[in-house]
Nucleic acid binder design. Structure first.
Lengths: 335, 335
DNA sequence: ATATTATTTTAACGCGCGTAAAGAAAATCT
DNA sequence: AGATTTTCTTTACGCGCGTTAAAATAATAT
């Protein structure tokens, strides 16, 4: 930087100012710097810069599982939001393990991020680790909530979205059974069950919840094996199955196909299957999957802008914010 | 660190040595440090550490598109390999854009990575940017090759893998047509076409290549719309379609289902469809997809270990290495 | 116990930049 | 033109640690 100051004819402190914020120097000097920049190709050393700054422009983005296209997609939107706001996103996947989530936060700590956008595991997350971390760094949660922690939460209104699809299913055929995992990792699953029970009550139908065993993140496999078993044994009380999420539904469709059960809402169909999330693959299943689309873009943008506001004002939120977006019904061929 | 030196009774330079490599200090001192560490919870500042080191422990991992579960999966394996070797992986997705790929490399430059694992776009990548970057930082390519660039390439032997599935398809029914995109972004697609032509020749069958239009990364959509059109118009010369990759095949299956065409190898099936890559979802399609499994784990590990070797010895490879792993046939129900 | 070797301590410099203070220069105002 | 304000230059210190060289100490060998 000293050398660059010499050749550009600008003093080092002024250059320092320029690199912190080009707008903070007079236009004539700015132009001089930018001219020299094209000729000498100098760039500040990130590590030296961040060493003395109390706040970096790094934003940690922590997702539970990048192998899930849902998170890959929402992660991408969050990254783009960061970039366009002038921050540097650092993407981290917890690879399906809450321990890794805690480790990721620890690793982030040393990168001195200005803030963190976290899609936590939820109930399985280590509350204390998240709480401790969020005391030091502003954190905005999205997708899954951890009650009472961090600055804000942005997600989908499961009560609205589930009611929407339950209403549709009841109106267009037999009322739905709910198919889900026995001990869901995700708090949204619990919300959706409550919403299902509530909604069925409101429409005056009897609720039927089917909970199956299964560990880990192989939702499709669980949906296929356990859903297939229930189908084979004829256990579902109605011909309509609402799956707690699309990945289970994808497995269920696979099982139905293998059993020779025709799925759909047309003539000759023996089963209706619906999901939730509008998973990127749900439009390519056979038949294509009727589901609820979450507003990925809105969630990602709101989470990001909430964090940026906190960073800009430099002060934490007085009260924790919760923002829920509506889901929308995506009618396809499976129900 | 000064303070920690005071309370732990160890001099600062010795502590510095310890944090660089705990094995480099006498066992008795190591124990003293580790004892103090449990009590005072000190950790070196990453930025200050990396400022003076010419080489950090950062490994850049650049993938073309995280929304593709294939890359998400191989990226995960690469990350784990880095972590277990004591490096810090930094994952970056190019979001389907070669320009972003170049930007990612630029961004990485400032993080002074010890090395980079790059799954490039291939022909669409900016050769010069990659070449320039790889002069400064050791880069190992994987999945897609860029001829002659970087230290090494690790991927799948498309000639072996395609021959394997062509041979199987020819043996078990009508010889396959090839279904692919007209201007594939990926060099593997070109290799696969050559391999298909070669293999069909060897088995004494006439080759039929169907190339369709389509832009971007929506392979499933292209497979469905264009594949559906070809099916509807009855253009395929045989009843067996080998898709250039699983994502096209997933679209093709969706199209066949919508057209009421029964896919499979059993009685009553009118069409066989096969893919390539063993995409995470290919086992849940209807019917499940017969395909070629790439040895993700081997590719990821070899790419990583090749890079680590270069870093350990501190010298670039004399000759560029190319390692190709065999694919294996995964027989499911679609062909 | 003495000589030899392996480690650690002390002291000091440097990395590349942020930042603060004081004076100089340029731009703007009266 | 002189007074005032804005911006820049000069000077100097500090961030948290790597690294080196010489001196001191501890461990091992003779």
């Amino acid at each position: 930087m000293e050398e660059f100051a010499a050749v550009s004819g600008i003093s080092r402190p002024t250059l320092s100012k320029y690199f912190n914020d080009p707008e903070s120097v007079r236009q004539s000097t700015r132009e001089k710097v930018e001219l020299a920049l094209t000729q000498y190709d100098y760039r500040p050393n990130v590590f030296a810069v961040n060493q003395n700054r109390r706040t970096t422009r790094n934003i940690g983005v922590v997702l539970p599982n990048l192998s899930d296209p849902f998170f890959a997609e929402i992660g991408r939107k969050v990254e783009l939001a960061c970039i366009s706001a002038g921050y540097s996103p650092i993407l981290m996947s917890s690879h399906g393990s809450p321990e890794q989530e805690s480790r990721n936060l620890e690793a982030l700590r040393s990168l001195k991020p200005a803030g963190v956008l976290l899609a936590p595991f939820g109930r399985v997350s280590d509350r204390r680790d998240i709480e401790k971390f969020s005391q030091d760094v502003p954190v905005v949660l999205f997708d899954a909530n951890v009650e009472g922690l961090c600055e804000a939460f942005v997600g989908t209104d499961n009560f609205q979205s589930v009611d929407l699809i339950v209403e549709y299913l009841c109106r267009s055929g037999q009322p739905p059974c709910l198919f889900e995992m026995k001990s869901p990792l995700n708090p949204n699953a619990n919300k959706r069950r409550q919403a299902y029970l509530e909604s069925m009550g409101q429409h005056g139908f009897e609720a039927h919840v089917y909970q199956v065993d299964g560990e880990g993140w192989g939702f499709e496999e669980i949906g296929r094996s356990e859903g297939g078993r229930l189908l084979y044994e004829g256990r579902f009380k109605t011909d309509t199955i609402l799956c707690s999420n699309d990945r289970l539904a994808i497995g269920m469709l696979s099982a139905a196909y293998n059993l020779g059960i025709r799925v759909g809402h047309g003539d000759g169909a023996a089963l209706r299957v619906a999901g939730h999330d509008d998973h990127p693959f749900s439009r390519f299943t056979s038949p294509s999957l009727t589901t609820i689309a979450q507003d990925y873009a809105a969630i990602a943008n709101r989470a990001a802008s909430t964090l940026f506001n906190i960073l800009d004002t430099g002060e934490r939120l007085k009260t924790r914010e919760e923002t829920l977006f509506d889901g929308s019904l995506v009618m396809r061929n499976s129900a």
